[in-house]
């Protein structure tokens, strides 16, 4: 399967027109120039799109792929209406399937499995909520722990646990060698 077909498949939920839009990138650099992440990292949005156009699979193992903060600035500004951020997400799905998920993203995934939250609540947030007159605990899995079981069911059913390498016995991530 070509990289383009894989991207289409992985971005199925977004629609073919959305994920295919990388084909019409004209390499103007509006995205990279607008990218808050690229200012402080080696992430070059345009280069990712460029390599996708060229069918360059090395993009899947490139740690840069995970430097996008999904702020959607490039998406908003792209003069060819390339759905950049959505495409990055679709490509990350392929990369994750092939075992290239970045460690911070794996850690976030493990929080979802363990608590139902990518960013679980902490004492500071609880205090802030109280000050604002809100219930200390929000009406999520924090308040309804039984809902966590539903989330875990989904995680198992979709093999998300295997993809991120979650060990149910230790309730933590398996160690992964850097590929």
């Amino acid at each position: 399967m070509s990289l383009k077909d894989e991207i289409e498949e992985c971005g199925e939920i977004l629609g073919k027109d959305t994920v295919d839009s990388f084909l019409v990138c004209m390499q103007c650099g509006k995205c990279t120039g607008s990218c808050p992440s690229g200012r402080i990292t080696s992430y070059r949005t345009r280069r990712i799109i460029n390599r996708l156009q060229a069918g360059d699979r090395s993009v899947l193992s490139d740690p840069d792929l995970w430097m996008c903060t999904t702020c959607y600035t490039c998406y908003e500004r792209c003069p060819r209406e390339v759905r950049i951020t959505d495409i990055i997400r679709a490509v990350r799905n392929i990369a994750a399937r092939e075992g290239y998920m970045s460690e911070p993203h794996r850690a976030t995934a493990s929080f979802v499995i363990k608590t139902g939250h990518g960013v679980p609540i902490n004492d500071e947030t609880k205090k802030l909520r109280k000050e604002l007159g809100l219930p200390e605990v929000p009406p999520t899995t924090h308040k309804y722990p039984e809902a966590l079981e539903s989330i875990r069911k989904i995680v198992k059913k979709t093999n998300f646990d295997k993809m991120v390498g979650f060990d149910w016995d230790t309730m933590s991530l398996e160690k992964r060698e850097k590929k």
Binding site: Q27, C28, G29, T32, G33, G38, R44, R46, R47
Partner: peptide, 11 residues
């Protein structure tokens, strides 16, 4: 003016 030099791949 902020831009990417697309030939150097450098913002």
């Amino acid at each position: 003016l902020r831009a990417e030099d697309t030939l150097l791949s450098e913002p």
